[in-house]
C-alpha cells in the first residue's frame, strides 16, 4: 500500500512539474513598473536611447497609475 501511494505521489509530482513552462514561472517574477518598462523597450528596440527613452517614462507612469501591467 505504501509503495503504491509513493508511486502515485511521485507520478503526480512529475506530471505537475513537467506541465510548468517558462510562462508559468514569470508569474512569480513580477517586475516593478520601471523594470517592466525598460525590459519591454530593450526587447523591441535592442537598447535605450534618445529616441525611445520617452517610452520608458510613459510606460512607467502608466503602470504606476494602474493603467498598464507587466505581470
Amino acid at each position: 500500500m505504501k509503495k503504491v501511494f509513493s508511486i502515485i505521489a511521485l507520478s503526480a509530482m512529475t506530471l505537475s512539474l513537467s506541465s510548468f513552462t517558462n510562462q508559468d514561472l514569470l508569474i512569480f517574477e513580477a517586475p516593478t513598473c520601471f523594470e517592466g518598462a525598460r525590459a519591454l523597450v530593450i526587447m523591441t528596440d535592442g537598447q535605450i536611447n534618445l529616441s525611445n527613452h520617452r517610452r520608458v517614462l510613459a510606460y512607467t507612469r502608466a503602470c504606476e497609475a494602474g493603467e498598464l501591467t507587466f505581470n
Binding site: V41, T44, D45, S51, N52, R54, R55, L57, A58, Y59, R61, A62, A65, E67, L68
Partner: peptide, 18 residues
Amino acid sequence: DNSYMKDVHESTVKSFTN
C-alpha cells in the same frame, strides 16, 4: 480619454517611425 495610455502609444509609435 486616457492621457497615460495616449502617452504610451504616442511614444511607442514615435520609436517605430523615428
